[in-house]
Design a protein around this nucleic acid. Structure first.
Lengths: 188, 188
DNA sequence: GAGATACTTTGATATAAGTCAAAAAATTAT
DNA sequence: ATAATTTTTTGACTTATATCAAAGTATCTC
C-alpha cells in the first residue's frame, strides 16, 4: 500500500528497512478529488504530504486578489506549506490538489517525533530543507534574470511535465505572469 | 575573543557550555578589509562565516552583467554562499565584505563534522536552514507583490539598518531595482 | 590637497508586461 | 446533447521600471 513511499525513502536515504517500516507506518493514505483545498490561508499547517499519484500546488493571494503559485508537487514528491508546517503559525499559503490525488499524510507531531527518534530521518529532513532552499533560490534567480518568454522556454525544456499537466492559468501563476501574457508568448 | 560567537550560540541554541567551547574552537578569526571578495563565481565555497562586526553580502551577476544582491549579513549573524556550501559545487554567487569586518570562519569539513558529532548543532543548522527558507520565501513574495516604492518603504520601516549602512548601489541591487529608480523613488 | 575614480541625481525615451474587455474554445454539469 | 461555466485567445491601451546619457557629488589615493 505505502509501497511507493517506501521505495522513495529507500532511494533517497540510508534508513534501514525496519525503520522505513516504522516511518511509513506513521503515514495515512488519503484520496482527494481534484481542486480540493487541503489548507487555507489563516489555518496552521498540521500535515505533510507524500504524493503517491496526482498533483498538488501551494499558492498565496496578492493584495489585489491574484493567485501566485509557489510550488507544484507531482507524483513521488513531498509537499506541505513549509513555512507554516515549520513554524506552526498561521499560513499565508493555500495547499490545493490540481488532480485527483492519492496521498500519504503525516501529522506535524508524528513528523517531528520521527525527527527526534531517527537520526537519519532528521538527516533526510535537513536535506529536504536544503533542496527546498536551492529550489527557491533558483526561482528567485529565474524571476529576476529572465524574461517571461525565457522562463517559459526554460520550464518547457527542463520540466516539460509542467506544461503538459497544468492549465495555462496555473502555469501562468507559477511563472509569475498573467494568463494573457502566457497565451501571447506561446504563439510567438 | 570568540565571546560574541559563544554568546550568539548560547542565545540561539540549548548547547551546553562545554560543547559551545568545542564548537567555537573550530572557528578561526579573520579580519578583512571592506570590498574584499571572500568567494568568487566558479569557486567552491569551503567556509561559513560568523560576522562579529562589519557587513557581508552575497550576490550574483545576470547575463547582462548586473549585480544582484541576494543576502546581506550584519554583525551577529551567519553567512555563506548557502547553495555552494551545501552542495560543494561551483558557486554562481560571490561573497564580499561591504565594510571592514571581523569574522569567525569555519571550514565546511569542520562544520559537517560538528553536524555529525553534536546533535544540537545539527538541530541548530536545521533551524538555520528553516530560517533561510522563510527569509527567501518572504523575499520572493515581496518582489512579486510589492512595487519598488513599497519594497523600499517596507525595508525602511522593518530594517532601517539596511538604509543607514548600505550605499544606494547595493541597496538598489538588494531591492531588485536600478540605482536610478531608487534615487527617484527616494525623492517622492 | 589635486586628480582620479566611483557614486548619485536628473532628464528623455523605450519597452516588457499588466489591465480591461470581449469573443472564441474547451470543460463540466444537468 | 445542451446549457452553464471556466479557460484561452485576441485587441487596444496603460504603466512601472529599465535604459542611455550627462551633469553633479562624494570618496579614495598618491
Amino acid at each position: 500500500m505505502t509501497g511507493k513511499l517506501k521505495y522513495y525513502l529507500k532511494n533517497n536515504t540510508n534508513i534501514t528497512d525496519k525503520q522505513i517500516d516504522q516511518i511509513s507506518g506513521c503515514f495515512r493514505p488519503k484520496t482527494v478529488k481534484k481542486n480540493t483545498l487541503l489548507l487555507s490561508e489563516g489555518e496552521t499547517c498540521k500535515e505533510l504530504y507524500f504524493v503517491h499519484s496526482g498533483c498538488i500546488r501551494t499558492y498565496y493571494l496578492t493584495k489585489q486578489g491574484h493567485e501566485k503559485t509557489r510550488h507544484i508537487a507531482f507524483d513521488n514528491s513531498i509537499v506541505t506549506s513549509v513555512s507554516s508546517f515549520i513554524s506552526q503559525k498561521s499560513s499565508f499559503e493555500f495547499v490545493e490538489t490540481l488532480e485527483n490525488s492519492e496521498l500519504y499524510t503525516i501529522s506535524n507531531k508524528d513528523f517531528y517525533q520521527l525527527v527526534s527518534d531517527i537520526p537519519l530521518w532528521e538527516n533526510f529532513y535537513r536535506k529536504f530543507l536544503e533542496m527546498a532552499y536551492l529550489h527557491q533560490n533558483k526561482k528567485i534567480e529565474n524571476r529576476i534574470t529572465l524574461s517571461a518568454k525565457q522562463r517559459y522556454d526554460r520550464l518547457m525544456s527542463e520540466e516539460p511535465m509542467y506544461i503538459q499537466r497544468l492549465s495555462n492559468k496555473i502555469l501562468a501563476s507559477y511563472l509569475d505572469i498573467t494568463q494573457e501574457t502566457l497565451s501571447r508568448l506561446k504563439s510567438r
